[in-house]
Amino acid sequence: MFTLGRNMHIKALRAFRITMIEGSIAKASEKMHLSQSAISRLISSLEGELKLELFLRSGRRLIPTQQAVAFDREARRILDNLDEIKRIADEIRTAQTQRLRVLAMPRVAPTLVSPTVKIFLALHSDVHLSVDVRTRRDAEQWLLGREYDLGIEPLPINHPDINSEVLLKVRAEAILPLNHPLSDKSEISASDLKDEAMIALLPNLLLRTQMEDFFHS
């Protein structure tokens, strides 16, 4: 995780973020109502503070580096939190301080989280509940940063500072052609599939890793 130094100007962070979104300094300058040279100076100061090369300069074009893509996730988190300050202050002033921040991954958000949120808010209308949908890859980092009160993610979550419990278990299913020799079986074991051709998920996905562990066992 990247951290900001005390002297880093928030405006430089916003200039970087808007440049990443818009794809050019010219468009970022329009959004921020600053000159293009001012945007360039802000980004250069950010690079100096972070000791990172965020953009490759080709004429008037800026090409984000891999370091820029990695830092952009952190910049978004920091700026999102800053944008929350006014709303949080309003809640404190009006004594509406009950907040629940939930982190969910795309696979469970529409089918599990959305119906649960509807039921919860019907019972607890005084709670301000927000749900962010993010990839599992960064889940532990977001939870450890105390950005969220609750995460709904596939296990395992192995960090010692995160308490986890099982909410539900689901069975894996095999999708087979109707005329496949295994299609009449009510249950299929790993040994049944050991010589079968399979369509696999992308490498490094959690479910892919779990399936590989299942077959290796």
Rank of each mutant, 00 (worst) to 15 (best):
V113A: 06
A109W: 01
D138A: 13
H216Y: 13
S37A: 09
F55C: 03
H159V: 08
K86E: 11
D72W: 03
S45P: 00
S35F: 05
E22R: 13
I92H: 02
E140H: 12
I85H: 13
K118T: 13
A12H: 09
I162K: 10
P110Y: 13
F214T: 15
H159F: 07
L42I: 00
L202H: 13
L121C: 09
E153D: 00
R57D: 02
K27G: 02
I152T: 07
I39V: 11
I18H: 02
R73V: 14
I88S: 06
E196T: 11
E74Y: 15
E91D: 08
E91C: 02
P64V: 05
R61Y: 07
H128P: 00
D192I: 07
P177R: 12
L182A: 12
D138G: 04
L207K: 06
L54R: 02
D195K: 13
A26S: 12
S58G: 00
R93G: 01
R134W: 04
A200G: 01
E140S: 15
L82E: 15
E173A: 09
V133F: 11
I92K: 03
V166W: 00
Q36L: 02
K51N: 14
K31W: 02
E84A: 15
A26G: 06
A12D: 13
L34G: 04
M1L: 07
G48L: 08
L52F: 03
P160N: 01
A75I: 09
N204V: 09
D132H: 08
